[in-house]
Amino acid sequence: MSDFAIDILLILVKLGLIFAVLLTGAAYLVLAERRVLGRIQRRYGPNRVGPFGMMQPLADAVKLLTKEDFIPAQADKPIFFVAPGLAAVTALLAFAVVPFSPPITLFGREVPMVVCDLNIGVLYFLGLSSLAVYGIALGGWASNSKYALLGGIRGLAQLISYELAMGLSLVPVVLMAGSFSLTDIVLAQNPVPFALLNPVAFLVFLISTAAESKRIPFDIPEAENELVAGFHTEYSGMRFGLFFVGEYINMMILGSMITVFFLGGWIGPVLPPIVWFFAKVMAVAFVFIWMRGTLPRLRYDQLMHFGWKFLIPVSLINVIVTGALLLWLKG
């Protein structure tokens, strides 16, 4: 068997694994969110299906699959069909560059624990996370519903606003790591994660990712009390499910990104690196859920105000300060 074939096989195996882990992860993240929110509100959350409600995601899937797939009369059908997939796929694709463990040696070969260690991983990630909004915008547009359209437009505006802050908050990370490769960034955080070295960038990134994934308090595109359900108002059944899955996969990806960029990736004592990686991702996911259970939704103008007039200036200043500091340290 040639190396190339083995490489392909390994990539396929990794892809399969990642798919499986991401999808089940997303499904259980839904359950985890409902349970945690329940506890925050002093309820139990879903606990009827299986022990501790562990089979709930399965039941949800069955329900979503068996529900009627409703298509509005005047909808732009092709786009309407594609949009939820787009939302899920772009989210999945971003995971290609995430290293979740140091390379391991398997059958005498060194196998990198990343699907594809691009040397411009950061740019790839930024690009894909921006693409994710296509699903929302197109879904909102294709539904031929004013709520959905408004939701899509808001999603676009919100993404543009926060993408900038997110990108700018990554500049110090790249500066500090001296590389665009995510593996290099992780390695650069041994022993001190960037979250401690540059907390401002960390916070800006954390907030921006929350806004990117349209999580509360930034869920303006689907604000229930104004827009019914925003961009997915007209979606039902598994198509709605895809949007949902996309959103939670996105949450996992962003969690991974935070882990990679700021929390030192797999690096940690005692436990195997992959466990550390997942623990950190889960911790970030928990923070997101916690945030949802705590904060109320921002108003649209507040959201824009906060993004443009606060986050971007702060991250710009942070770039300058970090750059200056690095120059001073090295110089």
Binding site: G38, R39, Q41, R42, G293, T294
Partner: peptide, 9 residues
Amino acid sequence: TLRNMFKKP
């Protein structure tokens, strides 16, 4: 919210 998480539902 964190405190409530550890109270009995």
